[in-house]
């Protein structure tokens, strides 16, 4: 099996321009609203250092295991853990079970959202002007 590609996040290159958050919320929610982005940039030391942060599609998949309605499954091609909104009841158990805090409740839809790598064409990596986010095979 080939190693699936992942988002490679390089905090040193991030300038906190929030292009990634904009692109993400546009792709998934149809609006420019960082509050609904699945990738989040955290700023430290008053902006001197920023860290883009999102789901790593971890092997353990705590969210998927705990889900009481089997609303989360693995996309075997991409290795992503994907939420099926038609099955999600919005119970939020996955949001507390994920120890990374990268699956979150969306008050607009009443369901949870997480990174799905945009189906293999992640928009955050595409728009990032500094290559702080790239999409490739981690070394």
């Amino acid at each position: 099996m080939t190693t699936p590609k992942t988002l490679i996040l390089d905090a040193d290159k991030c300038t906190s321009c929030l292009q990634c958050e904009m692109a993400c919320s546009l792709e998934h929610e149809g609006l420019f609203s960082p509050a609904f982005s699945r990738i989040k940039v955290f700023e430290f030391e008053h902006g001197k250092r920023s860290i883009p942060y999102t789901c790593t599609q971890c092997e353990e998949a705590w969210c998927m295991q705990v889900c009481p309605t089997k609303a989360i499954s693995v996309n075997s091609e991409l290795g992503t853990k994907v939420v099926d909104e038609s099955l999600c009841v919005g119970c939020k158990v996955c949001t507390m079970a994920c120890p990374y805090g990268t699956i979150n409740y969306n008050t607009r839809s009443g369901k949870v959202t997480k990174c799905d790598l945009c189906g293999g064409d992640p928009k955050c990596a595409e728009v990032c002007p500094t290559d702080a986010i790239t999409y490739g095979v981690a070394t």
Partner: peptide, 12 residues
């Protein structure tokens, strides 16, 4: 509602 899971992460 955002990143509540980190509470579990830090505790565990």
């Amino acid at each position: 509602t955002q990143h509540v899971g980190v509470m579990r992460g830090l505790i565990q």
